[in-house]
Amino acid sequence: MNAINTGFGIWSPVVWTLLFLGVLGIGFWIWGAGRKDYKKNSDQTKPFLAGNEEPDPARLHVSGDHLYWGMTAGLRAYYDRIREWHTGVLSDYFAWFIGVLAVVFIVIGLLR
């Protein structure tokens, strides 16, 4: 009743959630079985940064546009073109609309 049959297989989220919680529990058990003999409130609990002074955390935040810089730079050829299409000029919006209308007319007109 609660599962959906997609033709290929069955998706049952309740079973999935139970399995997921089980795997999470196993993960926590492994994590809990780790070493506990470190010294609290000492440098051992801090993240290890070698060399320079630790910079101000506000400057370490990677903001919006920088996150996928590598990806957008890699797809530069595609992005340059697609940005060119989105001109923001109303006449171009209409040109696309009328263009699609023309293509749809041609396709439908060719049928039978």
């Binding site: 923001g88 171009d92 919006y93 696309w96 609309f97 263009g99 699609v100 209308l101 749809v104 007319f105």
Partner: peptide, 29 residues
């Protein structure tokens, strides 16, 4: 019946409603 007039009407309805739904390349609004 699927005459030529029906086809023209279908083309107009399909494009206009797809535009209002925001299908690319008529999505810019």
């Amino acid at each position: 019946g699927g005459s030529m007039v029906d086809k023209i009407a279908l083309g107009l309805l399909l494009t206009a409603l797809a535009m209002k739904a925001g299908a690319v390349p008529m999505h810019m609004w």
